[in-house]
Design a binder for these strands. Structure first.
Lengths: 118, 118
DNA sequence: ACTACATTTAGGCAAGTATCGAAATAACCC
DNA sequence: GGGTTATTTCGATACTTGCCTAAATGTAGT
Protein backbone atom coordinates (compact mmCIF):
# COMPACT_ATOMS: atom_id res chain seq x y z
CA UNK A 1 0.00 0.00 0.00
CA UNK A 2 1.01 3.57 -0.58
CA UNK A 3 1.70 5.83 2.33
CA UNK A 4 -1.33 8.02 3.15
CA UNK A 5 -0.06 11.01 5.01
CA UNK A 6 2.98 13.12 5.68
CA UNK A 7 2.97 11.67 9.19
CA UNK A 8 3.16 8.07 7.97
CA UNK A 9 5.87 8.92 5.47
CA UNK A 10 7.80 10.68 8.21
CA UNK A 11 7.65 7.52 10.30
CA UNK A 12 9.19 5.46 7.50
CA UNK A 13 12.04 7.93 7.20
CA UNK A 14 12.39 8.13 10.96
CA UNK A 15 13.24 4.42 10.92
CA UNK A 16 16.19 5.22 8.62
CA UNK A 17 17.21 8.25 10.65
CA UNK A 18 19.53 6.34 12.95
CA UNK A 19 22.97 5.05 11.87
CA UNK A 20 22.73 1.77 13.78
CA UNK A 21 19.43 0.95 12.11
CA UNK A 22 20.99 1.57 8.69
CA UNK A 23 23.87 -0.72 9.66
CA UNK A 24 21.35 -3.40 10.63
CA UNK A 25 19.60 -3.19 7.25
CA UNK A 26 22.94 -3.40 5.41
CA UNK A 27 23.80 -6.48 7.46
CA UNK A 28 20.47 -8.08 6.63
CA UNK A 29 21.20 -7.59 2.93
CA UNK A 30 23.77 -10.36 3.41
CA UNK A 31 21.60 -12.87 5.25
CA UNK A 32 18.97 -13.23 7.96
CA UNK A 33 20.40 -12.73 11.43
CA UNK A 34 19.29 -13.33 14.99
CA UNK A 35 19.39 -10.66 17.67
CA UNK A 36 22.52 -11.99 19.33
CA UNK A 37 24.46 -11.95 16.05
CA UNK A 38 23.47 -8.34 15.40
CA UNK A 39 24.31 -7.49 18.99
CA UNK A 40 27.78 -9.00 18.58
CA UNK A 41 28.47 -6.88 15.49
CA UNK A 42 27.06 -3.58 16.73
CA UNK A 43 28.42 -3.95 20.28
CA UNK A 44 25.27 -2.58 21.86
CA UNK A 45 23.12 -4.00 24.65
CA UNK A 46 20.77 -6.72 23.41
CA UNK A 47 17.80 -4.70 24.63
CA UNK A 48 18.89 -1.74 22.52
CA UNK A 49 19.23 -3.90 19.42
CA UNK A 50 15.84 -5.45 20.09
CA UNK A 51 14.32 -1.98 20.24
CA UNK A 52 15.93 -0.93 16.94
CA UNK A 53 14.60 -4.11 15.34
CA UNK A 54 11.07 -3.42 16.54
CA UNK A 55 11.23 0.08 15.04
CA UNK A 56 12.38 -1.35 11.70
CA UNK A 57 9.67 -4.02 11.88
CA UNK A 58 6.89 -1.53 12.63
CA UNK A 59 8.01 0.68 9.75
CA UNK A 60 7.74 -2.34 7.40
CA UNK A 61 11.44 -2.90 6.67
CA UNK A 62 11.94 -6.29 8.26
CA UNK A 63 10.05 -9.37 9.39
CA UNK A 64 10.90 -11.89 12.10
CA UNK A 65 10.60 -15.65 12.31
CA UNK A 66 10.96 -17.73 15.45
CA UNK A 67 13.59 -20.47 15.26
CA UNK A 68 13.72 -22.25 18.59
CA UNK A 69 15.10 -19.86 21.15
CA UNK A 70 16.33 -17.55 18.43
CA UNK A 71 14.42 -14.94 16.49
CA UNK A 72 15.63 -14.48 12.93
CA UNK A 73 15.17 -11.12 11.34
CA UNK A 74 15.29 -10.57 7.58
CA UNK A 75 14.47 -7.91 5.03
CA UNK A 76 10.77 -7.81 4.22
CA UNK A 77 10.32 -9.28 0.74
CA UNK A 78 6.83 -7.84 0.38
CA UNK A 79 7.44 -4.35 1.69
CA UNK A 80 4.45 -2.39 2.83
CA UNK A 81 4.11 0.54 2.39
CA UNK A 82 5.60 0.56 -1.12
CA UNK A 83 8.02 3.36 -0.34
CA UNK A 84 9.89 0.90 1.85
CA UNK A 85 10.74 -1.09 -1.26
CA UNK A 86 12.18 1.93 -3.01
CA UNK A 87 14.23 2.70 0.10
CA UNK A 88 15.61 -0.85 -0.13
CA UNK A 89 16.76 -0.38 -3.71
CA UNK A 90 18.56 2.84 -2.83
CA UNK A 91 20.09 1.37 0.26
CA UNK A 92 21.42 -1.51 -1.82
CA UNK A 93 23.38 0.95 -3.94
CA UNK A 94 24.54 3.16 -1.10
CA UNK A 95 27.36 2.83 1.43
CA UNK A 96 29.06 0.14 -0.63
CA UNK A 97 32.42 1.62 0.30
CA UNK A 98 31.73 2.69 3.84
CA UNK A 99 34.34 1.32 6.23
CA UNK A 100 31.95 0.55 9.03
CA UNK A 101 29.48 -1.19 6.72
CA UNK A 102 32.26 -3.23 5.12
CA UNK A 103 33.66 -4.24 8.47
CA UNK A 104 30.15 -5.14 9.68
CA UNK A 105 29.75 -7.32 6.58
CA UNK A 106 32.96 -9.17 7.33
CA UNK A 107 31.84 -9.80 10.90
CA UNK A 108 28.45 -11.01 9.66
CA UNK A 109 30.19 -13.58 7.50
CA UNK A 110 32.31 -14.91 10.34
CA UNK A 111 29.82 -14.71 13.19
CA UNK A 112 28.04 -17.91 14.23
CA UNK A 113 25.21 -18.01 16.70
CA UNK A 114 26.26 -21.40 18.05
CA UNK A 115 29.72 -20.20 18.97
CA UNK A 116 28.38 -16.84 20.11
CA UNK A 117 25.83 -18.18 22.56
CA UNK A 118 27.36 -20.63 24.96
CA UNK B 1 28.31 13.17 -4.42
CA UNK B 2 27.25 9.92 -2.86
CA UNK B 3 26.67 9.73 0.81
CA UNK B 4 29.76 8.43 2.66
CA UNK B 5 28.55 6.92 5.89
CA UNK B 6 25.54 5.53 7.67
CA UNK B 7 25.61 8.68 9.80
CA UNK B 8 25.36 10.99 6.79
CA UNK B 9 22.60 8.91 5.24
CA UNK B 10 20.75 8.97 8.56
CA UNK B 11 20.90 12.76 8.50
CA UNK B 12 19.28 12.89 5.07
CA UNK B 13 16.45 10.68 6.28
CA UNK B 14 16.21 12.63 9.52
CA UNK B 15 15.32 15.67 7.44
CA UNK B 16 12.34 13.76 6.02
CA UNK B 17 11.37 12.35 9.42
CA UNK B 18 9.08 15.24 10.34
CA UNK B 19 5.63 15.81 8.81
CA UNK B 20 5.94 19.59 8.61
CA UNK B 21 9.19 19.31 6.68
CA UNK B 22 7.55 16.94 4.21
CA UNK B 23 4.70 19.43 3.83
CA UNK B 24 7.25 22.17 3.10
CA UNK B 25 8.89 20.10 0.35
CA UNK B 26 5.50 19.32 -1.20
CA UNK B 27 4.71 23.05 -1.16
CA UNK B 28 8.03 23.87 -2.81
CA UNK B 29 7.17 21.44 -5.61
CA UNK B 30 4.65 24.07 -6.68
CA UNK B 31 6.87 27.13 -6.57
CA UNK B 32 9.59 28.86 -4.56
CA UNK B 33 8.27 30.40 -1.35
CA UNK B 34 9.49 32.83 1.26
CA UNK B 35 9.46 32.06 4.98
CA UNK B 36 6.38 34.13 5.71
CA UNK B 37 4.34 32.36 3.04
CA UNK B 38 5.29 28.96 4.44
CA UNK B 39 4.56 30.23 7.93
CA UNK B 40 1.08 31.34 6.84
CA UNK B 41 0.29 27.90 5.43
CA UNK B 42 1.71 25.79 8.25
CA UNK B 43 0.48 28.06 11.02
CA UNK B 44 3.66 27.75 13.02
CA UNK B 45 5.93 30.40 14.53
CA UNK B 46 8.24 31.94 11.93
CA UNK B 47 11.25 30.84 13.94
CA UNK B 48 10.06 27.24 13.88
CA UNK B 49 9.65 27.34 10.11
CA UNK B 50 13.07 28.94 9.76
CA UNK B 51 14.56 26.08 11.76
CA UNK B 52 12.84 23.46 9.60
CA UNK B 53 14.16 25.21 6.50
CA UNK B 54 17.71 25.21 7.80
CA UNK B 55 17.49 21.47 8.45
CA UNK B 56 16.25 20.87 4.91
CA UNK B 57 18.98 23.15 3.52
CA UNK B 58 21.76 21.42 5.46
CA UNK B 59 20.56 18.02 4.27
CA UNK B 60 20.75 19.25 0.67
CA UNK B 61 17.04 19.39 -0.17
CA UNK B 62 16.60 23.11 -0.68
CA UNK B 63 18.54 26.25 -1.47
CA UNK B 64 17.80 29.84 -0.57
CA UNK B 65 18.13 33.11 -2.44
CA UNK B 66 17.86 36.55 -0.94
CA UNK B 67 15.26 38.79 -2.55
CA UNK B 68 15.23 42.08 -0.75
CA UNK B 69 13.93 41.55 2.72
CA UNK B 70 12.58 38.15 1.75
CA UNK B 71 14.43 34.87 1.52
CA UNK B 72 13.10 32.57 -1.19
CA UNK B 73 13.48 28.88 -0.68
CA UNK B 74 13.25 26.38 -3.51
CA UNK B 75 13.98 22.73 -4.21
CA UNK B 76 17.65 22.14 -4.92
CA UNK B 77 17.98 21.48 -8.64
CA UNK B 78 21.46 20.03 -8.24
CA UNK B 79 20.90 17.85 -5.23
CA UNK B 80 23.92 16.77 -3.29
CA UNK B 81 24.23 14.08 -2.04
CA UNK B 82 22.66 12.15 -4.92
CA UNK B 83 20.26 10.28 -2.68
CA UNK B 84 18.45 13.57 -2.16
CA UNK B 85 17.52 13.56 -5.83
CA UNK B 86 16.01 10.11 -5.62
CA UNK B 87 14.07 11.16 -2.54
CA UNK B 88 12.66 14.03 -4.63
CA UNK B 89 11.41 11.71 -7.35
CA UNK B 90 9.64 9.52 -4.81
CA UNK B 91 8.20 12.45 -2.96
CA UNK B 92 6.79 13.76 -6.23
CA UNK B 93 4.77 10.56 -6.61
CA UNK B 94 3.73 10.28 -2.98
CA UNK B 95 0.98 12.00 -0.98
CA UNK B 96 -0.76 13.14 -4.15
CA UNK B 97 -4.11 12.47 -2.48
CA UNK B 98 -3.30 13.52 1.05
CA UNK B 99 -5.86 16.03 2.34
CA UNK B 100 -3.39 18.19 4.19
CA UNK B 101 -0.99 18.32 1.27
CA UNK B 102 -3.82 19.21 -1.14
CA UNK B 103 -5.11 21.92 1.14
CA UNK B 104 -1.56 23.27 1.57
CA UNK B 105 -1.25 23.38 -2.21
CA UNK B 106 -4.42 25.41 -2.52
CA UNK B 107 -3.18 27.86 0.08
CA UNK B 108 0.16 28.13 -1.68
CA UNK B 109 -1.63 29.15 -4.87
CA UNK B 110 -3.65 31.87 -3.15
CA UNK B 111 -1.06 33.19 -0.73
CA UNK B 112 0.77 36.39 -1.66
CA UNK B 113 3.68 37.76 0.29
CA UNK B 114 2.71 41.36 -0.45
CA UNK B 115 -0.73 40.97 1.07
CA UNK B 116 0.62 38.78 3.86
CA UNK B 117 3.24 41.19 5.07
CA UNK B 118 1.81 44.62 5.64
C1' DA C 1 20.06 57.59 10.79
C1' DC C 2 15.39 55.98 11.91
C1' DT C 3 11.54 52.95 11.23
C1' DA C 4 9.35 48.88 9.64
C1' DC C 5 9.37 44.32 8.80
C1' DA C 6 11.24 39.51 7.20
C1' DT C 7 14.24 36.35 8.92
C1' DT C 8 17.46 34.12 12.08
C1' DT C 9 19.38 33.14 16.56
C1' DA C 10 19.06 32.25 21.53
C1' DG C 11 16.81 30.48 25.57
C1' DG C 12 13.60 27.56 27.70
C1' DC C 13 10.16 23.91 28.13
C1' DA C 14 7.80 19.55 27.09
C1' DA C 15 7.91 15.45 24.56
C1' DG C 16 10.46 11.95 22.26
C1' DT C 17 14.67 8.88 21.66
C1' DA C 18 18.94 5.99 22.48
C1' DT C 19 21.06 3.74 25.75
C1' DC C 20 21.79 0.67 29.67
C1' DG C 21 20.89 -2.89 33.41
C1' DA C 22 17.47 -5.64 35.54
C1' DA C 23 13.36 -8.20 35.40
C1' DA C 24 10.02 -10.83 32.70
C1' DT C 25 9.07 -14.11 28.91
C1' DA C 26 9.79 -17.99 25.91
C1' DA C 27 11.99 -22.07 24.35
C1' DC C 28 15.37 -25.56 24.66
C1' DC C 29 17.67 -29.54 27.20
C1' DC C 30 18.46 -32.59 30.89
C1' DG D 1 10.10 -29.70 36.54
C1' DG D 2 14.38 -27.01 36.86
C1' DG D 3 18.28 -24.84 34.77
C1' DT D 4 20.04 -22.33 30.76
C1' DT D 5 19.91 -19.09 27.28
C1' DA D 6 17.83 -15.76 23.66
C1' DT D 7 14.78 -12.16 23.43
C1' DT D 8 11.63 -8.62 24.96
C1' DT D 9 9.82 -5.43 28.28
C1' DC D 10 10.45 -2.12 31.97
C1' DG D 11 12.51 1.75 34.44
C1' DA D 12 15.95 5.18 34.70
C1' DT D 13 19.01 8.56 32.63
C1' DA D 14 21.18 11.54 29.27
C1' DC D 15 20.39 13.59 25.06
C1' DT D 16 17.83 15.42 21.13
C1' DT D 17 13.94 17.65 18.94
C1' DG D 18 9.93 20.67 18.02
C1' DC D 19 7.77 24.34 19.59
C1' DC D 20 7.26 28.96 21.47
C1' DT D 21 8.64 33.91 22.81
C1' DA D 22 11.99 37.38 22.86
C1' DA D 23 16.06 39.37 21.15
C1' DA D 24 19.29 40.08 17.34
C1' DT D 25 20.27 40.69 12.42
C1' DG D 26 19.64 42.41 7.83
C1' DT D 27 17.36 44.99 4.30
C1' DA D 28 14.25 48.71 2.23
C1' DG D 29 12.40 53.07 2.24
C1' DT D 30 11.96 57.56 4.14
Amino acid sequence: MNVHSARELARVHQALAEPNRIRILKMLEIRPLCVCEITAVLQLAASTVSKHLSILREAGFIVDHKDGKWVNYQLNEHPDPKVVGTCFSHLARLLTNDETVLSDAEKVRSVDRHQLCK
